[in-house]
Design a protein around this nucleic acid. Structure first.
Length: 223
DNA sequence: ATCCCGAGGG
DNA sequence: CCCTCTGGAT
């Protein structure tokens, strides 16, 4: 097999076919594929902070009430932390999340009240890491950004997109597989597939449209 | 018992 | 690298 430091071309084709099938399975833009409810970039950021170790459905149950009282940087910055904690309690990690939400709103205000629209500014906000920043970039600002969460990490390994475990390195590897404008949607598609089909505990390989291209399934089926 | 669109701190 | 933070769903 020819591989002089370049990737095998059949491997490139396999990956491209997986990406094409994911696009057919979950069509739409990052904005359309995102299942968090929000009406401003600031609200998406707040919802994404809440989504840590929690389902989107659960986040969407608490954000209407949260945004009713604290839907803007100004309102959230001066919120009573106990009140915020009570509203978001069911999303888990609620002490940290309430503290982070209020601190985040205050740092937005200190920065002039406008949410940053690049990685540097976003990830410098309290409680905002690279994954959350990439969600806001791709979904709210329609910019290149490829959030690597637990699903993207798991599927990237199973599908043979990476052998690494560092989410930043995986992000850079995945970046090379799609044009910039498709990065956010690829992440969302892997997340949706990870939730519905390639489930962490019990992958539904029999129902998976990618199984014939999946090294993990092929290895499993080989006996 | 294990997992859910993580981030901060040691 | 590790640990902690947390409730809800399966």
């Amino acid at each position: 097999m020819i591989n002089d430091g370049f990737r095998d071309s059949s491997e490139d084709e396999r990956r491209a076919e997986i990406i094409a099938r994911l696009r057919d399975l979950y069509p739409g833009t990052a904005r359309e594929l995102c299942e968090l409810d929000f009406s401003t970039p600031f609200q998406l950021l707040a919802a994404t902070i809440l989504s840590a170790q929690c389902t989107d459905k659960r986040v969407n149950m608490v954000t209407p009430k949260l945004f009713e009282s604290y839907g803007t940087p100004t309102l959230l910055a001066s919120a009573d932390i106990v009140d915020v904690e009570e509203i978001i309690k069911s999303t888990g990690f609620y002490h940290n999340k309430a503290k982070n939400l209020i601190a985040m709103a205050r740092s937005v205000l200190e920065g002039g009240g406008e949410l940053p629209n690049e990685m540097e500014g976003l990830s410098s906000l309290a409680g905002v890491g690279r994954k959350t920043a990439n969600v806001v970039l791709s979904v709210a600002f329609d910019k290149p950004g490829l959030p690597v969460d637990t699903h993207v990490m798991r599927l990237s390994k199973l599908l043979g997109f990476t052998t690494l475990s560092d989410p930043v390195k995986i992000e850079l590897e995945l970046n090379e597989m799609v044009p910039p404008r498709d990065r956010g949607a690829l992440s969302l598609r892997m997340i949706l597939h990870g939730r519905a089909v390639c489930v962490a505990r019990k992958p539904r390989c029999h129902a998976c449209a990618l199984a014939d291209l999946c090294p993990a399934f092929i290895a499993l089926a080989k006996d």
